[in-house]
């Protein structure tokens, strides 16, 4: 990581100078507060008790984790899918490309500035999030695990956004492509997983199938919602292993897949940012 990255510093400066950045944090925290305090208020009132049980605290934690995941999945494309294409549209890209900065510096600067902004949103929400610790029921390990995988997801979706932004000339089209890819990874893979598991469960004679379902395991491993569900409900991990007949942790598959996706997307973006002068066309 290059801390003297000029693009990163310029992007951070511009992002925090605009009202958009400030408004983003304000509305996110406001939504979090309304949700958390609203949930506590309703639970206490509906149950008729004047206290908040640890089991209810866990439900709140689960909801907040999915809100954070939703934030990452829906904000990361918006922040990264215009990173290069908007420079192209504003006619600032040719000048940037004639500077001495390497393509990797430019891409990583763009990527990290968006990631930093989203991380800041997540960190800004930590005080509200950590309210669940007050009532117990959550281990710090769960908390760290959730944040670590949120970060992995953020990097992957961010790098896909930067890649599409480099490959596609127009920001609108790049946004559509990135959101499409995000929806495929987070929603379509979930449906496909259910279909594959159902189809694999019984053969055409109606007898149970004992062979492993690699595709089912793969689809479960790349779906962020399934991964978070396995963190929040470890029994689900065992159920998936029984369904797919493959004993391989979902989180490991997730880490490998999105690690490769991040590296590949960044590699393509770096390679395609500038024209290859050596190759004859």
């Amino acid at each position: 990581m290059n801390f003297t990255n000029p693009v990163l510093f310029k992007e951070l400066k511009l992002r925090f100078r605009s009202f958009k950045g400030f408004n983003g944090i304000l509305f996110f925290l406001l939504a979090m507060c309304i949700f958390v305090f609203g949930y506590i208020f309703l639970t206490v009132n509906l149950t008729g008790t004047s206290y908040f049980k640890p089991s209810q605290s866990f439900v709140l934690f689960a909801f907040l984790s999915y809100i954070q995941l939703g934030l990452v999945l829906f904000t990361a494309p918006g922040l990264t899918a215009g990173s290069i294409s908007s420079e192209r549209e504003k006619q600032t890209l040719p000048i940037l490309l004639t500077t001495s900065q390497s393509s990797f510096q430019i891409i990583s600067g763009k990527m990290l500035s968006s990631v930093a902004f989203l991380l800041m949103l997540i960190v800004a929400g930590l005080p509200v999030y950590s309210l669940v610790f007050l009532f117990g029921g959550i281990s710090p390990g769960d908390f760290v695990k959730i944040f670590l995988f949120l970060f992995v997801t953020l990097l992957a979706i961010g790098s896909i956004g930067v890649m599409f932004s480099t490959l596609i000339r127009r920001t609108v089209v790049s946004m559509i492509a990135t959101y499409g890819m995000m929806l495929f990874l987070s929603v379509v893979t979930g449906f496909l997983f259910i279909i594959v598991i159902q189809m694999k469960a019984f053969n055409h004679m109606g007898t149970p199938v004992t062979s492993p379902s690699y595709l089912g395991q793969f689809l479960a491993s790349i779906n962020p919602a399934v991964l978070f569900a396995t963190f929040l409900s470890p029994e689900l991990n065992r159920s998936i292993t029984e369904m797919t007949k493959i004993n391989f942790p979902i989180w490991a598959g997730y880490l490998i897949f999105y690690g490769i996706v991040t590296a590949l997307a960044l590699f393509i973006a770096v390679k395609k940012l500038r024209v290859n002068m050596k190759r004859l066309k």
Partner: peptide, 22 residues
């Protein structure tokens, strides 16, 4: 270039500083 854009919310000296750093 014949047509070029500039970054919003960047001052003249910051504009040059960014390219100097680049």
């Amino acid at each position: 270039p014949d047509f070029f854009g500039v970054y919003d919310q960047l001052k003249a000296d910051e504009y040059l500083d960014f390219y100097g750093a680049s």
